Computed example of a mutant assay.
Amino acid sequence: MVRLTRVQQQERTRRSVLAAAREEFTEHGYALAKVDRIAERAELTRGAVYSNFPSKRALYLAVLIDMVENAATGEPATSPTSPAEVLGVFARTWLERLPLVGDTASGGRLHLRSLVGVLDDEHGRTVLAQVVRLEALLLAIALESCEPAQATPVRRVRLAELVLTLLDGSGHLAESAPGFGDPFDLARACAHLSGIDLADTWTPSYLPFVAPARLCGDAWDPPTGLANQISGGRVDFGADGLIAVLGAGRLAAAEEAVRSARPGEQVTVVVVTNDSAETGRLVRLRITDLIGCLRRVFAPEAWQRVRLVLDDEALTASAIGLTDLDDETESAVRVRGGAIVARAHGRGAAYAASTADASNGTQPRSART
């Protein structure tokens, strides 16, 4: 008889709970699903379910993450060359989540990754708004990589926000009025959006008032084993570059890190939260889902200067000396030659750390585009 280790038994229990929960959510939907029925389906006690997932919302998010992570992604199926063609392919890929003919209402919502009725509190909605800002940045960086080289780089964040608004809106409509709208028309509409001149620039008004970073020469003992969510590979924190540690409520500041970075410098955005069960899973679900779509359209080189880490255990935060973390955390360090040469905390931290000039102890005040 094979005796399972404790870790193996815990994983088996977790898998049983996820399978039972998926059946329950498919049959009854999120609102009417019952943890007691999930425990019964899994042939476990209610306590065993809660020992793995502290709430029904945490369990629902875990089911969606499991679905997304096990979906096939593979290499880009095509090699689109223009922003219009890229957006058309991306939209068609994203729209594969729309409910299928014959899906039950509850099953269709699960396939759609619906969060309607799940985020029923102000905090959850606030975090979701920040995550969508990060999603738009990731899509925009990929779109910008399709543009010809220019003296003033093209910014595509507002275009990405517009595309995601259209696609997310189609998802909500498919949930409330299934069958309405043609996915091919939506994909063509997204492609045509690339021709709109949105006069998109990055000039935050607060940058001239950001407090300077603290220059230093601190030893840098980087964490190991963390994954880059964009590429799927391990992150080498030993390389020179900017590291921005952002709470789930400050994810919009990721663009500040990307735009402020010096030419050719590596930018690592690290997401932290003090609620990994729900807030952390919400961020992981949305980012994993989006990146799964992006990987099917863009080559990894589109984000070669940007890395994204979901640091549930706050290993990076601990390595740079942060101990009191919450969803409003915003800190950054600049690493050079194996040492931390600049530190900043609070609003504008990424800009402050990136633009600090260790050679003369000053920090430039001009905003970068």
Score class of each variant (00 low, 15 high):
residue 174 A to M: 08
residue 181 G to W: 02
residue 265 E to I: 00
residue 147 E to M: 15
residue 246 L to W: 12
residue 132 V to N: 12
residue 217 G to M: 04
residue 155 R to Q: 09
residue 184 F to K: 09
residue 187 A to T: 03
residue 189 A to R: 15
residue 228 N to I: 07
residue 156 R to A: 03
residue 158 R to A: 02
residue 204 P to D: 15
residue 179 G to K: 13
residue 208 P to S: 14
residue 169 G to A: 13
residue 180 F to A: 07
residue 228 N to P: 00
residue 263 P to S: 12
residue 201 T to C: 02
residue 246 L to I: 11
residue 129 A to N: 11
residue 217 G to D: 09
residue 142 A to P: 04
residue 195 G to P: 01
residue 189 A to Y: 12
residue 184 F to Y: 04
residue 234 R to C: 10
residue 208 P to L: 14
residue 136 A to E: 15
residue 159 L to C: 04
residue 154 V to C: 03
residue 260 S to C: 03
residue 247 G to P: 13
residue 153 P to F: 01
residue 248 A to W: 08
residue 140 A to Y: 02
residue 246 L to S: 09
residue 165 T to E: 12
residue 215 L to Q: 04
residue 169 G to T: 10
residue 180 F to E: 09
residue 203 T to F: 03
residue 190 C to D: 02
residue 170 S to N: 10
residue 196 I to M: 11
residue 264 G to W: 10
residue 234 R to I: 11
residue 211 A to M: 08
residue 262 R to N: 08
residue 204 P to Q: 14
residue 189 A to G: 13
residue 248 A to M: 06
residue 172 H to R: 15
residue 153 P to Y: 02
residue 240 D to Q: 07
residue 250 R to N: 14
residue 193 L to D: 07
residue 233 G to K: 14
residue 224 T to I: 10
residue 248 A to Q: 06
residue 204 P to K: 15
residue 171 G to F: 06
residue 129 A to P: 07
residue 235 V to L: 07
residue 183 P to Q: 13
residue 130 Q to I: 04
residue 171 G to Q: 14
residue 143 L to W: 01
residue 228 N to Q: 09
residue 212 P to Y: 11
residue 270 V to D: 00
residue 167 L to N: 08
residue 187 A to F: 08
residue 226 L to T: 10
residue 151 A to P: 03
residue 222 P to G: 00
residue 266 Q to W: 06
residue 265 E to G: 02
residue 221 D to F: 06
residue 269 V to S: 01
residue 238 G to R: 14
residue 270 V to A: 00
residue 162 L to C: 00
residue 190 C to Y: 05
residue 268 T to P: 09
residue 252 A to P: 05
residue 181 G to P: 11
residue 225 G to R: 12
residue 184 F to T: 10
residue 140 A to W: 04
residue 157 V to G: 01
residue 270 V to F: 01
residue 167 L to F: 05
residue 258 V to G: 01
residue 204 P to I: 05
residue 200 D to Q: 15
residue 231 S to F: 10
residue 253 A to K: 07
residue 266 Q to A: 10
residue 236 D to C: 06
residue 134 L to W: 08
residue 156 R to K: 12
residue 213 A to V: 07
residue 253 A to F: 04
residue 154 V to M: 10
residue 188 R to Y: 00
residue 161 E to G: 00
residue 199 A to H: 14
residue 228 N to E: 04
residue 190 C to F: 01
residue 140 A to L: 07
residue 176 S to V: 15
residue 238 G to D: 12
residue 197 D to N: 15
residue 270 V to Y: 01
residue 262 R to A: 10
residue 166 L to R: 15
residue 145 S to Q: 06
residue 159 L to E: 00
residue 255 E to L: 03
residue 146 C to E: 10
residue 242 L to V: 05
residue 199 A to G: 08
residue 251 L to V: 14
residue 174 A to N: 14
residue 268 T to V: 15
residue 211 A to R: 13
residue 172 H to C: 04
residue 141 I to V: 13
